[in-house]
Structures are given as structure tokens and as C-alpha cells.
Design a protein around this nucleic acid. Structure first.
Lengths: 341, 341
DNA sequence: TTGTATGCGTTATCAA
DNA sequence: TTGATAACGCATACAA
């Protein structure tokens, strides 16, 4: 199958390739230097042949692919499709396309994405990265790829990278405050993997919040999960079975909603009443959290907005000529109190 | 920022570009026609420069992008992330990358994807398409793009396109049978948009199944939804409020789980007991369906497997030299009976 | 207002 | 075992 090129169009219209190129790339811009008559003729030829510009050739020539990569850890977590939507919509407006890299929580896969991004000559990257090292990110930056981070991973290490953040600290503190006000004194935490930035960060903030409200940190009340639903049942069991009555938690804060939902399911199937016997809260406010019974108390992160802001910022950098300023945008969180606490 | 090219590597290693190309593309294959010594030298130069092959140039030259497009209607429906995972995993194994086109249920967007796919010179496409016309698909096929359909959209119209299907007919019939056996006689249907293939198809099968079990089709018991959760509450209200007692449905079959979940939520908030007063069932078996109370009876579609099969078939076509045979793969469904019926 | 010519970074054909 | 060289399809500086 041979698809028409500019040359075919040029021949058919009786003009040169350059003229065709000019006409096609002239989005009613200023330098209208083509006679109306040839323009008509060329456009007729384009239509007749069904000519479609070859973006590959265009990219090679322009040294720009109009491709933006988005790195995420787990597309099956309902948090991320919303983030993708936001990024997508922003990218659409500027004729950029999103290339989604889903690592499925695998550090190795995430690592290999760097090479792939480099080879594809992607113009920019949005990183919601859990395992990339400073060197990994440096490789991208050094290659002239525009990078925007999601979360708070990067900028500490001397990387000149803009970041979209949400104020986890006050969000989690507000959550703990809410629990304390409900009378809870023994609050357990089901953490995310501590070798991931959000896992570690949420855990640390949890500890700080405890002490802020005069509560003792008890290592027995902390379990490490995976940010996914699997395996939560065992953690919950050890939390409620392995402890004496007076040490058992009256509330559980899970580091994300997927784990919180599974916590509620586990407790319920063990015969516990949520929230009467044990309260549960999460983090993210993914849609299913509002669907379950009892509906989950959680922190709203607005992934759509995060994705949109990240992509907007990235494109702004990409489209402006000056060296891009490092910027730090904060997306507000929201405490969402429902029935599980 | 200037990134190293083959020429840089060649200079550094003191060989020609062609040699570098040979060495890089020689994945320990048969024709090892390079002396071990130059190979070492070249590979050292590659490592030292951090050379990454430019896939854009490669694509232009090879007339192959190693890109596969995946068209889906709504990435925020948890069904699709699983499908993406399946396709992704299959594509990964053959060094192909997935380009996700999410139409957000917009016919216009879906339509515009065809041009984008054509321009990007994507090698193959997986279509879970709701609104593409036969001509749209023909444009892809005519351009030499390999196409695999998901669902049963295409092959009727004389298009030579392989399709992955799930046997909706027997699945829905089994679902209705289950309801009938539970004693239900007035079964309502919340359909998907009837201008979409799955919306129309599920509706038709629903009607056939009714008559198969000797039940009268009642237009008052059919409402048209959108495959999303929004707006379902109104439909449910009109189903339970606008009908006399002896015409009110005792069961509702929603055309997908997202609508079924919202149906349960609406009924519950209206004070109805599910399933005791009204039973509800859905279609898809997305993960949240198991989380809600009562857990949803539904039909398991195995999106992961569908995505994987589709991508595998597509890649098989892409990688084989012969003209590809039209094939039709059926992915088994599963009736999942839970608490909502 | 239009055409000519060059190069973007590869791969592949053909010689050497 | 290696090197020259010609495409691939396009955009753009410059000439006409």
C-alpha cells in the first residue's frame, strides 16, 4: 500500500513540493504568500488524493514529535484514569498526544521507560514516578526533554524540575484530627510501600500528626501494604486478632482508597461493624469510595485537575521559547467525611 | 541540546555509520558478520556517548512505527484499564507500544481519531469503537493499517477485519434465565445508547431472551442511559414511581455495571431493599461491582483477556508476511451471581 | 508568488 | 568484514 506524499499532491496540482508544504502548514497565519488560485488547486488535490501529512517525516524534520509521555504506577487504580483524562484534555488543545507508560508497580518497567522515552524522542514527560532515581530523571533533562513531576519526588535532589503537588501534610493532619475528634486514640496505619515516595511520605505525616495530637506512635499498629487491594485481608486480621483488647485499634487509616476499601471489606467479613467498632479512612477519593457501604471517609485529591495542571504546565514550557522557569503548583485537597468514620 | 547520532558513534569508534547500524540491529541473530573486535569498539562508543537510536528516523526509514493504537470509549470506566493492561502486555512482548485513544464517548472525537491514526503512521489499530462508520474503518484498512475489532461491529459490512467477541447472546440469556428462575416476571432494562453497537445489541438480546422465557416485552420497562453513572437516578425514579403497583418491575437489568451500580445506589437511597423488593443485575463485572452492597450479580467479560487476545492477534498479523486471514476469536463470558438478585 | 536544494537520522543495497 | 550511497517524507533558507 502506497500512501500519497506531498510530491503526489504537488504533481497533481502542478506545483512544487515546497508550495504544497507552505499551503498545508499555513494555518490561516500571517504570511499568506500564496495566490488564492494555487491554494485552491492544491487543496483540491489534497482532498482528491486523501493526502495525510506524515507525522514521522515531519517529526524528523522539525525535531519535535508532539508526543508527551505520562508515567503512572497502576492504571487499574481508578485514580489514574481521571488523571489521564485531565492530562489528555490539556494536551489535546495544543495538538499534542499522550503516550501512557503504565509500570504496573514494577521498578524495572519504570526504569526501562526512560530508554523508551529517550528513543521515541518524546518532547516532554509527566512523571508520577515511584522508583526513578535522580540519575534517571537527569538523563531525561539532559536530553532536552521537558519534565514535570507529580507529587513531591524530584526537586529536592537539585533537579530543576517543576512539580505539581497536593498538600498531603495538612490533608492527612486534618484526617487524623477528624479521627481524634471522634474520640479515637488508637489509630492504625496501613501504609504503602515505604520505598515509594507517597508511601513513605504519608507514613511520616501520619506519625507527625499523631504526636501533634498527643498520641503515642505504636509500631504494632502499622502494617505495610502495596497500594493495591490484594493482601489487605491478612494485614487487617493481624491488626485485630494479634493484639490484646486494650491495644486494638479503633480506627484504621489506609494510605490509599484501594487499600481502605479492602480494609472495610475485610472487617465486614470478619464481623466487625464499621465505623461503630472500627473506623476506616483512606486517601484519594476515587469514585468507588462513594459507592461502598459504609461510604469511605477520605481525602479528595482531584486527579483530573492534577493531570490537567501538569500537562498545561508542561505544554507551556514546551511552547515557549525561553528556558522554562521551575514552577511549583499546588492543587488543593479536600477532606471528604462520609460514613466510615 | 544535541543528542548523539550513529554518526557520532561511528566517528568515535573509527568505523562507518553502516557498521554501527549493523551492530546495533544485530540482536544476536544469524548473520553475525562483524568482527568481535569492531563490535566491542562500537559498543564501547555507544555506552560512552549514551547513544539512543532515534526511533523517528528508524520509523521513517523502515516504514514502520512499532505503534499500535487502541480506541476506547471511556477510560474512566474501570472495564477499560483492564483491557488496556491486557493489550499492553501483549504489545510489550513484541516491542510495540500502545497509543491510547480515549474518545470520552464523543462521536466527533472518535471520528477525528481516524485522521490522527493515519497521520501518525500507526501500524495497527484495535477498535472498541462505538461510532465509527464503515467508511472510517475502510480508510484505515485501505491505508494498509492492520485492524482488529473488539465486539461485533465490523465484519458484517463486508469489511475484512478480524474481531474478538464475547458471546453476549448466551450471556444475557443466562442472566435473564437466572432472574426468571428467581421468580421475576417484570424485568426492566436500563439500556445503553441505542446508537452504539453494545447498547443496541444488549437491548435486542434482552428482548429475545424475554420472549424465550415467555415474558411480554413492555416498553414502559425500558429506559435509555448513557453507560455512565450520571442520570441513572432519574431513570430509576421513573421506573418505580411512574408505574402502577402491578406494573412496577421486580428486577432491573442494566446494560453495564456502571449503570447497575448507580441503579442500586438510587434504589437504596429511595428506601428500596435490593434484592428483596427489586433485584438488580449488570454487565461487565468490573472490580467495584464486587465491593458494593449488595454485591452485584453480573456477567464477567474478562476485559484483560480481550485486550490481550486483540493485541496478540493484531501483532501476529503485523509480524507475519502473508496477507492476514480474517479470524474470529471468542472470549468466554461468565455468569457471576452475587447478592443483588 | 513560487521553485530548488539541503538535511533531519536511519536502514538497506551494492561494492569493495 | 566493512564502507559509500541512496532513499524515507518533510520543512525551510534561499534563489528566482
Amino acid at each position: 500500500v502506497k500512501r500519497p506524499t506531498q510530491l503526489d499532491v504537488a504533481k497533481k496540482a502542478g506545483v512544487s513540493r515546497a508550495t504544497v508544504s507552505l499551503i498545508i502548514n499555513d494555518q490561516e497565519s500571517s504570511n499568506v504568500r500564496i495566490s488564492e488560485e494555487t491554494r485552491q488547486r492544491v487543496q483540491a488535490a489534497v482532498a482528491e488524493l486523501g493526502y495525510q501529512p506524515n507525522l514521522i517525516a515531519q517529526s524528523l524534520r522539525r525535531q519535535r514529535t508532539n508526543l508527551v509521555a505520562l508515567l503512572i504506577p497502576d492504571i487499574t487504580n481508578p485514580y489514574y484514569p481521571l488523571l489521564i483524562r485531565g492530562a489528555q484534555n490539556a494536551a489535546d488543545q495544543h495538538d499534542y498526544q499522550l503516550l501512557i507508560y503504565d509500570s504496573d508497580d514494577s521498578p524495572a518497567r519504570e526504569h526501562s521507560f526512560v530508554d523508551s522515552i529517550l528513543r521515541r524522542r518524546v518532547d516532554g514527560v509527566i512523571l508520577q514516578s515511584f522508583h526513578l532515581s535522580v540519575e534517571d530523571v537527569s538523563r531525561l533533562v539532559d536530553a532536552g526533554i521537558e519534565v514535570v513531576g507529580l507529587g513531591r519526588i524530584l526537586h529536592e535532589a537539585g533537579l530543576e524540575v517543576s512539580v505539581i503537588t497536593s498538600d498531603h501534610s495538612s490533608a492527612i493532619t486534618a484526617l487524623i484530627k477528624h479521627l481524634v475528634e471522634k474520640g479515637h486514640r488508637r489509630i492504625a496505619h496501613i501504609a504503602g510501600p515505604l520505598d515509594t515516595p507517597p508511601g513513605l511520605e504519608r507514613m511520616q505525616i501520619f506519625r507527625e500528626a499523631l504526636s501533634q495530637y498527643g498520641l503515642q506512635y505504636d509500631p504494632n499498629l502499622v502494617k505495610i501494604g502495596t497500594f493495591r487491594g490484594e493482601g489487605i485481608a491478612e494485614l487487617v486480621k493481624s491488626l485485630v486478632f494479634d493484639l490484646p483488647d486494650d491495644a486494638r485499634p479503633t480506627a484504621i487509616f489506609a494510605a490509599n482508597d484501594l487499600m481502605a476499601i479492602e480494609t472495610i471489606r475485610s472487617l465486614t467479613s470478619l464481623g466487625y461493624q464499621v465505623p461503630d467498632e472500627i473506623a476506616v479512612c483512606g486517601f484519594d477519593d476515587i469514585p468507588p469510595s462513594a459507592w461502598i457501604t459504609p461510604a469511605l471517609t477520605t481525602v479528595g485529591q482531584n486527579p483530573y485537575e492534577q493531570g490537567k495542571q501538569a500537562a498545561s504546565l508542561l505544554l507551556q514550557h514546551l511552547l515557549s521559547d525561553e528556558k522554562s522557569q521551575v514552577e511549583n503548583i499546588n492543587v488543593p485537597y479536600q477532606l471528604v467525611v462520609r460514613d466510615s468514620t
